[in-house]
Structure formats: C-alpha cells, structure tokens
Design a protein around this nucleic acid. Structure first.
Length: 780
DNA sequence: CAGTGAGCGAGCTTCCGCTTGACTT
C-alpha cells in the first residue's frame, strides 16, 4: 500500500516551514505531497569571501551542510512527482529560496511551477494553484544583491577589526548600527543635565454623592525657580477660586492593530516581562502546535476568514455593538508582508492548554487580535478651568469618563515608559461661577528626565522604525551584540533624590525637603568598553555604513533591481569599489584603535600611566612599552570604564598585589584577577566578600576568609577515597559531582552519591569522557 | 570556573536571513 502511494505522487509542493506543510497537506488531498525546505537551502561558501569580486561578483553557493539531508529527500520526491509546486513565501527571500531549490534539486522547468499565497486557508491555496507563475528572476537578483552586500560588508570589516582592535570581533550592516544606537544613547544620558522646575497643584474640597471629596487641579505653566514658585503661592494666600469654565467633549480611542513580530516582542516584554528570545521560543511552540499563525511577520493584515470569525466571536460574547471590522495598513519601512499578522488560528478559542508561558502569550495574542476587531471606546473628557482672583494663571482639572468601553473591555496596549501622573478620573458636578474651597496648594520641585536606555524590546522597535533587520532576525541581533560583548544587559539602579515642596495651607506657606527614590528598571542595554571602542572606530572610518539610513538607501536600490531597472552586480560594483578602497586605506593608516589614552604620570616614578584595551578587557599600564623595563599592568574593576577612569583610580589599581603578612608560615597576598579580588595563600585562592576592599583589607580578615573557605570545602565533601586522594565526591551548586584532579563529572540521577565506590567513580568519569569525545567529533 | 595582559606570529575568528533539528538499525 505504501509503495503504491509513493509511486503515484502526482504533485510535490515545497513550502518553507514543516508546520505549514502539515496544514496545507490537509487542504490539498491525496494527490499532493507537501514537504518543507526548512528555509534557505543554499548559502554563500562559508570559507573565504564566497564572492568573486573580480568576476562580476559571481557568488559561490553551496548547499548548507545542515540541509544536505533535506535536499537528498526532496530530490527523491521530486523524481517521482509529475509536477513540482514551489510555494515558498511571497517576498524577496522566498523567491530566492524557490530559485535555489530549482538549482539544488536540478528541477526541470517544464514540470516546475511557482505559486504564492499569504494566508493559509483552503481557498487561498486553491486559488494559488490555479494561478501559477514562473520564478521572478529580478526579485531573486534583488535578494542576491542583499546577500552579497551583507557578505562583503561583514567579511571585509570584521577582519579589519581583528587587525586593528582584537581577534574574533565582528561588524555588519545591522549589528554595528544596533550597537551605535546603544552607544549614542549612553552618550546622551552622560551628557544630560537635569533641570529642576516647580509644578503647582491645588486640592479643593468638593461635594459628591458620598459627601465630601477632593478635586485636584494644576497650573499648566512651570516655574523655573523656587523663588517664583513661592511668590506665586504667596499671591494665592488671600485669593478666591471660582469655576470659570467647564468644557466637555466626547473623544474616541481605537484599538491597536493585531501583532507583528516586533509589536509582539514589545508587548510581551511590557506586559509579561518576557525577553525577546523567550517570546519567540514560546511563540514557536504555539505555532508548531497549530494554535497561532506564523510568528515571524511584518504584516498587520488579517485574512477575510479571520475577520468574519472575529465578528462572530465578538457578537456572540459581547453583542453586535462591540464589533467593528477593520483592515489595518502596515506602516513600517521595508515591510514585505508575506504572511498574515500574528493571530490565534481559531479565534473562537479564548484560552488554551499548555504551560504558563504559553497560556499567557496566547492570551495576549488572542486579546490583541479580537480587540483589533472591536468598536472604538467612547470617552467623555472634561476640562474645568478655575480662575484665581489675584493672579493671571488658571488652574485646570481634567477628567475622563468612559461612556462606552468598546475594545477597552478586553485589551489596552501598554506604554514603554511611565507616563506623567495624569490623575484623570471622574470629576464632581460643578457649575460655572461656583466658588471653590481650597484645602491646600503645593509647589513641588521636579526634574527633567534623562533619555531612557534601550531595553531589548525598545531596541527592536527602533530598529524596525529605521527599517533595519527583519522579523526573523530581531532576536538573533540582540543575542549577537551581547555575545560579542559589545553590549550588556543590566539593571538601572534607582537613585535617591531630594526635592523641595512648598505647601500653602491655612494661609501659611511651609517648606519641606522630601526624598524620592527613582524607579529601579531591569534589563537595560549598556554599551561595554569594547562596544564603544569598535563603534568609535567604525564611525571614524565607515560613516556611510554606520549611517542610520544606509539600510533604507540600499533597500531602494534592491527595489530597483526587483523592478528590473538595474542589474544587481552593477549596483554591487558601485557600492564595492569605493567601499573596498575605504577598507584598504583604513588598514594602511597606523591608527591607534586600542583606545589608548594617557592618564598622567606616576608621582613616585614619573612613568606614564595609560588606559587601553588588553586582550581580556580594559587595563591600565604603568610605564612605556619601548623601554627595556617591562611595564606593569592591572585590569579595571567591574564598575570602572575606560572612558571615566581617572589617574587616581589607576594608581589605586597598581597598589595590588599587596602582601598582608604571614599566616601558617606562608605569605598572604591580596590581588585582583579576572573574577574579582582574591587572596592567595599557599597556592590556594580565596575570593573576597562583597564588602571587602582589597586596598584596605587586614590580615585578620584574610585569615577569617581562609578559615571560612576551608570549612565550606570540608562540608562539601561527600566522600573521599584513601586509595586515591585525587578522586572525591563533592557537593556543588548543581548537585553532587565527582572531582578527579582538575576535571568534574556529573553523577547520573539513578546513582546514590553516598554509596559510590572508587571504581564506580572512575567508570562514570570514563563514560562521560567518551560521550563528550563523540559529540565533539560529530560537530566537526 | 581560574587568577592572564608586550613581543615572536601558526591558524583561527566574521556577515544577514530563511527555517528547525537533535543517537541506533
């Protein structure tokens, strides 16, 4: 039976994703075999440049090693099929995938057809089958131009960094600009000078249904000095407050469009605290289990089927007045819209089974998609203007009441940063001309805020805004720039700030100094020394590549190629000739790219002290390298940076290592290493505590630390063997393990660590070693 | 988990965009 089926394959359809293949196969019936290419199948040669720059930029393509099996299987199926339908995505990359498939599979054009659809519905697919076309070579060429340009930029700039700064660094059209954004944000924050101002608010007693309450109004103008604020309050001491005007106007709020990759990443970060990578991992699980549509998309479009389904769901759950069918248009630069927006596959399914993360992300996607098809919310905004008899300034109270919830019943998009405290709620019923009874008036000191550092999600938003990167690359970009150590994710500490408040109450003005702790923010992106250094180097020598518009500009050219108005290798030539010259000139210039900076002279020896980038990070150097005497080096501390370190800081760093004295007839030395400050004693190492300062620590404290560590080590011993002192069973951070000389081995779960014999230990170690060796050889 | 850093200079590193898999017989 199985054989019969295989022989009778009439049609082979190739899509990009296996989950998609499964769905489509269900629509098409038994005459169609649907397979997946798993994305691109060929790429430029991994070694060397992969592009022949002397021969019209001829690309050297090879089947990606991890795709060898895919190609082998597809070849087998293609041989048996009467017709092959290439159904990769309808965009530049998708067109190229189809073209590469023809080449890699050696397909006969006579029996090959290209079809496209951008929603996975039966009707869309049948329509596609009925309207096949041939490969759009112009679109393929646009992709080749994109690919070759990225390779040339990446593989010429990176080696330049290896020579000029340090090995294994990288640069590219996308990652280098992402780093630039973060470096420049940090510069903006550093140069920011907060300005203080005074904001005046008044509290009035008012009557409402429950008796008495308080209404808050504020002066829209700010006072730039304390004196002006105080003068204003003084003028108000004997003032009368009268309702001058009440303005009420209806306004509406519209729902946000359904999710794209970028908006999903942002909202999951704000509402669920997910990292970009986590969001994508969970979304992939939802997609593979058929719960949501494709999660890498730049489109806000929903299929007609989804629109009508949403209408039914909303009408049934909330009533027809809550439904409003909307078509959203994509705004973002360079969007290619090969897919639908991200939405639940079955809109009638409001919640799913799965783990907590899956449930929460699904809930977010469902609410966002449904809300996007709901009516506007209708609000009533009220503005009450209050006259002050003694001054010109007016007090304003703002209120907002929802008269029809609409989509707000379900979902409201969050903001990235804390909004100004707009106390908008229900206002009391007042009449024009009514006199108001003042409880108190405050003039409170505020400070303008520095720019916000990027989080992963806000960086993605910025990149998308600039048209840099694609839905499939936002998460990898973020991990690349962190893996290269250009950028670090860290927390922003909230600093305590003092501010002045003046209060007018019962005819008197009181001054009070208050303290306020600014919010602690998690997961911000900070540039590292090396990130800053590489950015400075690239900005100096490759301003054109680093330009925020570079991608947008070359995209315009890719579009021309796609329209057949320009040959792709001609476009690349026009870019490459000057670019390559730039690279060669930069290589020649004996530029000091290690960021070396003279901090001053050592007051004792008069030798120069520099800060620069060493092989393992930033270091300070005492003495010059051209002398016969070897200079001294010391690494910077964790919280120091090349940019801000001073001569005094550097001199402190050279005070280590220090000898504290003798203990057990051996010297006790304190020094600073890769993992922070430590004590060395009898060739053993002891880390300093959090509150110990290596510059001031005393011998007594060091002895204490040594004793503590010894005690801890003893407690960690589960088992020792008299026969072989090198083998031990120990308790570690990740559970019990076997230590043999300097290597550690995890104990299998089904073994009891207490009862292991020496022979057992050696056997376990041997097993783990052979498994590891196998894995290594397979990787190669 | 390990406590370096120049110089000498083998052989290595690197891009962006598409997609998930993962050992045996």
């Amino acid at each position: 039976m199985k054989n019969l089926e295989e022989i009778m394959i009439k049609n082979l359809v190739i899509v990009e994703s296996p989950a998609k293949a499964k769905t489509i196969e269900g629509f098409l019936g038994k005459d169609f075999l649907v397979k997946s290419s798993f994305g691109h199948v060929r790429d430029l040669a991994k070694k060397n440049l992969g592009v022949d720059v002397d021969n019209d930029f001829e690309p050297a393509y090879e089947i990606s090693p991890e795709k060898a099996k895919v190609i082998k299987d597809l070849k087998k199926d293609a041989k048996k099929a009467k017709m092959i339908w290439l159904a990769s995505d309808e965009d530049r990359e998708g067109e190229a995938i189809s073209w590469h498939l023809i080449q890699a599979l050696g397909l006969d054009e006579e029996k090959t057809k290209r079809i496209v659809f951008h929603e996975i519905t039966k009707s869309a697919i049948l329509e596609a089958i009925n309207n096949p076309r041939s490969i759009d070579k112009n679109l393929v060429d646009a992709q080749q131009a994109r690919r070759v340009l990225d390779r040339l930029v990446g593989f010429e700039l990176s080696p330049l960094l290896w020579k000029k700064i340090r090995p294994a660094l990288s640069a590219g059209r996308v990652q280098s600009v992402a780093v630039r954004l973060i470096v420049e944000k940090e510069e903006d924050i550093k140069s920011f000078k907060p300005v203080s101002y005074y904001k005046v608010t008044a509290h009035f007693y008012v009557k409402n249904a429950n008796g008495q309450s308080i209404m808050i109004a504020e002066i829209l103008q700010w006072f730039d000095t304390r004196q002006k604020a105080q003068n204003f309050l003084t003028n108000c001491i004997d003032a009368e407050f009268t309702v001058e005007n009440i303005e009420t106007k209806p306004t509406t709020k519209s729902p946000a469009p359904p999710f794209t990759t970028s908006t999903l990443q942002q909202e999951a970060s704000r509402k669920l605290g997910f990292s970009v990578a986590n969001t994508m991992r969970v979304a992939q699980q939802l997609y593979e289990s058929g719960k949501i549509t494709y999660m890498r998309t730049d489109s806000v479009n929903l299929s007609n089927l989804a629109l009508s389904k949403a209408k039914t769901v909303i009408t049934n759950s909330y009533g027809a007045e809550y439904s409003k069918t909307r078509k959203f248009a994509t705004k973002s630069k360079g969007a290619q819209e090969a897919h639908e927006a991200i939405r639940p596959t079955y809109l009638e399914t409001a919640s799913i089974s799965g783990d907590t993360a899956q449930k929460r992300l699904y809930d977010l996607i469902w609410k966002r998609a449904i809300a996007s098809q709901m009516s506007n919310a209708i609000l009533e905004k009220t503005i009450i203007t209050i006259d002050i008899s003694t001054v010109d300034e007016k007090l304003i109270a703002k209120g907002e009441v929802i008269t029809f919830e609409g989509f707000l019943k379900l979902y409201l998009e969050s903001q990235d940063e804390e909004m100004n405290e707009a106390s908008e709620g229900v206002l009391p019923k007042l009449t024009i001309g009514e006199r108001l009874d003042l409880k108190q008036m405050n003039a409170s000191q505020r400070f303008t805020k520095p720019p916000y550092r990027y989080s992963e999600a806000t960086l993605v938003r910025k990149l998308e805004e600039l048209g840099i990167g694609r839905p499939s690359t936002y998460a990898p970009i973020i991990s690349t720039i962190q893996r290269r150590e250009y950028v670090e994710k860290g927390d922003k500490q909230g600093a305590v700030k003092e501010f002045t408040t003046l209060t007018l109450m019962d005819g008197k003005i009181n001054e009070e100094i208050k303290k306020e702790k600014a919010g602690f923010v998690k997961g911000r992106l900070f540039p590292t020394d090396i990130g800053t250094l590489v950015n400075t180097f690239l900005m100096k020598n490759f301003k054109n590549i680093m330009n925020y518009n570079f991608t947008a500009d070359v995209e315009k050219e890719f579009d021309e190629i796609a329209k057949g108005q320009q040959a792709w290798n001609q476009m690349i030539n026009e870019f490459y000739s000057p670019f390559h010259k730039q690279v060669e000139e930069t290589l020649k210039s004996s530029d000091n790219a290690k960021g070396e900076k003279l901090l001053g002279q050592d007051p004792e020896s008069g030798k120069n002290i520099y800060v620069k980038l060493g092989r393992y990070g930033a270091i300070v150097q005492l003495g010059d390298t051209d002398n016969t005497v070897k200079p001294r080096f010391a690494g910077l501390k964790k919280n120091q940076s090349m940019e801000s370190i001073t001569l005094e800081d550097a001199l402190d760093l050279f005070k280590l290592p220090r000898t504290l004295g003798d203990h057990e007839k051996n010297e006790v030395i304190v020094a600073s290493g890769r993992f922070g400050p430590y004590i060395r004693h009898k060739s053993s190492f002891y880390s300093l505590g959090k509150n110990d300062d290596p510059l001031t620590i005393q011998l007594s404290r060091a002895i204490e630390l040594i004793a503590e560590k010894r005690k801890q080590d003893k407690e960690n011993i589960i088992k020792e063997f008299k026969e072989d002192k090198n083998v031990k069973v120990l308790k570690g951070r990740y559970g019990p393990y076997i230590s043999i000389e300097k290597s550690n081995y995890k104990i299998p779960k089904n073994r009891d660590p207490e009862s292991l014999t020496l022979k057992d230990c050696l056997e376990i170690a041997e097993q783990i070693k052979t498994i590891k060796a196998k894995k290594k050889s397979r990787k190669k």
